[in-house]
Amino acid sequence: MSFEGSTLVDWVAFAKARAELGAGFVRILGYFREDGVKSVAAIEQAMRSNSAAAMVIPAHTLKGESRQFGADPLGALAETIEEIARDCVERQDSCEEALEHVVRLRPLFFETLNLLEREANPLVSRRPAGGGGFGRKPAGY
């Protein structure tokens, strides 16, 4: 599954998080990378072990951290996995129904992370909104 960058990240929420976190933003995004890699691996291992209980906490963690940066599709996928896992724990049932979601998790995580890190990189040149800017003619003129 491939998303365009505009649908993977709510850039308004991203900008808000960036403003609120200030100088610590890049460091916290680094924690998101570290925690996310661990969470995805733990969810995949839980799926291989057919352990719904082991899936709940890493899915919950990934859900919350994703939404903090405006990564809503990733947060929603993690929430789906968490809900399935919780239901399976309550029913004392196999977590097989989570498989299709777990398979989509790793590529979506890394695709989203690449967008977040690219936008957070201070060395990336950005075009001003509207195509204007100092020395440039605004669009439509």
Rank of each mutant, 00 (worst) to 15 (best):
E90C: 06
S39L: 02
L123T: 09
V56L: 09
E119K: 13
W11K: 01
G24M: 11
W11D: 01
A85W: 04
A78E: 01
A15N: 13
E100L: 12
E44N: 13
S39H: 09
D10M: 08
G5W: 02
V37D: 12
V89H: 08
D72S: 09
D10E: 09
D72A: 09
G30K: 02
N114W: 00
E4S: 14
R126S: 10
N50F: 04
G30I: 03
Q92F: 04
R48N: 13
P58C: 10
F134G: 08
F110W: 12
Q92I: 02
S49F: 00
G64K: 00
C88T: 01
G75S: 08
H60C: 07
P138W: 02
Q45I: 02
E20C: 03
L99W: 01
E20A: 14
G24R: 10
L29C: 07
S49H: 06
A54M: 07
A129W: 00
R48D: 12
I28S: 01
D93A: 15
G24P: 03
I81F: 07
R127A: 15
A76G: 08
R136G: 00
E119I: 00
G140L: 11
M55N: 06
E20H: 06
S94P: 03
S51A: 12
E79L: 15
Q92R: 14
H60R: 03
L108I: 06
S66L: 10
D35R: 05
K63S: 01
R127Y: 03
K63D: 00
P58I: 08
P73V: 03
E97W: 00
G70M: 07
V103A: 11
T112C: 08
A78L: 08
E79A: 15
R106Q: 10
A120P: 12
E96T: 11
A42L: 10
Y141G: 11
A85N: 05
G70D: 06
I84T: 10
V12T: 14
R86F: 02
H60E: 03
P73G: 03
H101I: 01
I28W: 00
W11I: 02
M55C: 14
A78Y: 02
R91Y: 02
L8H: 00
Q92N: 15
D10L: 08
G133I: 09
S2D: 14
P138C: 07
F109E: 04
L74E: 02
F110L: 11
G24K: 08
I43G: 08
A17L: 12
G22Q: 01
G140A: 12
